[in-house]
């Protein structure tokens, strides 16, 4: 029964990780869908959320939940600023412009964090230190709480898109940008909101991950491949597909972790998903263009 325990533990880990990944990929997917920008610096926002949370907890002495609230807001504010100085200027231009600009942004954010917060990994104590019995194993309660929060936020974003005015705008604009503008939809504000929401969710994923993985300036690069592959395999711009593939990715990685080191499990998961793109170049759920 020992083996089953390990498998169940790793699968739960994978599920938690998949949900956090879904939070990150959500913003990537929304920004791509709305503005046709692939933000290469998106992983760095996740990293920034984690590093800021660790800094707020360890250096400023804030309680974890306070830090986890503030850090995503700071990342969202940064994204609002970047919307003004960068994203507005790449909108509607050749793909290369936005890709190269955000590749530069990735280097800027990662190295600014390195300069200000140093290269040492930081760790944060989980705000809940108990464990619960689940499927016959004991599992850290914080990880379940983080997974629950991630689900809540994913649901909240779904409801926001479905039932609010700006949610409707965010669904309408990607379908026909010029038509939305001619209908009076405040495009610039919708873009800014989407970009800020992307920063908020990626930053929140970073904050929630900190007690599990710690914080380090290179964790943005580490998340780059997983977050992009779930967006592409999910069918570029397809929100439901992206979330589903993120969870599949997490579970697969968890399963592989039973038998190999985390790096090897991550690499193998990526290598498993890459061939999907050969057989389904538009992704699993990418029907249209």
């Amino acid at each position: 029964m020992m083996d089953f325990d390990v498998v169940a533990f790793q699968l739960l880990n994978g599920l938690v990780w998949g949900l956090l990944l879904a939070l990150i990929a959500l913003g990537l997917c929304l920004i791509y869908g709305l503005m046709h920008i692939s933000n290469l610096a998106h992983g760095s926002l996740f990293m920034l959320g984690a590093v800021l949370t660790a800094y707020a907890c360890n250096t400023l002495g804030l309680p974890f939940w306070g830090a986890a609230l503030i850090a995503p807001l700071v990342v969202a504010a940064l994204m609002l600023l970047l919307d003004r100085v960068l994203f507005t200027h790449v909108l509607g231009r050749e793909i290369a412009v936005s890709i190269l600009a955000t590749a530069g942004l990735l280097l800027v954010i990662d190295n600014l964090v390195l300069a200000f917060f140093g290269g040492e990994p930081a760790s944060v104590d989980a705000p809940l230190d108990g464990a619960v019995e689940l499927f016959g194993i004991t599992y850290p309660s914080y990880r379940l709480a983080a997974a629950g929060l991630a689900i809540l936020v994913l649901l909240a974003v779904g409801l926001f898109l479905r039932f609010t005015k700006y949610g409707l705008f965010m669904r309408a604009v990607p379908q026909a940008r010029a038509l939305a503008a001619a209908t009076g939809v405040p495009i610039a504000r919708v873009n800014a909101l989407t970009i800020a929401l992307g920063g908020l969710t990626a930053g929140l994923a970073g904050a929630l991950a900190t007690p599990i993985t710690g914080a380090h300036f290179q964790m943005g690069l580490a998340i780059l491949a997983p977050s992009f592959i779930v967006v592409v395999v999910g069918g570029l711009g397809n929100l439901g597909g992206t979330v589903a593939v993120a969870i599949i990715y997490g579970l697969l990685r968890g399963l592989l972790s039973v038998a190999m080191t985390p790096t090897a499990a991550e690499a193998t998961t990526l290598l498993c998903l890459l061939p999907v793109l050969y057989f389904r170049p538009r992704g699993l759920f990418g029907g249209g263009a």
């Binding site: 669904r171 309408a172 503008a181 001619a182 209908t183 009076g184």
Partner: peptide
């Protein structure tokens, strides 16, 4: 910008995009 002009009271039915195809008629 176009959206401000639309809110000022001018509408444009273009040839290229007539509707938001994936939204319902009500939406």
């Amino acid at each position: 910008p176009a959206d401000a002009r639309a809110r000022a009271g001018i509408a444009y039915m273009s040839q290229e995009h007539r509707v938001f195809p994936e939204l319902s008629v009500a939406e």
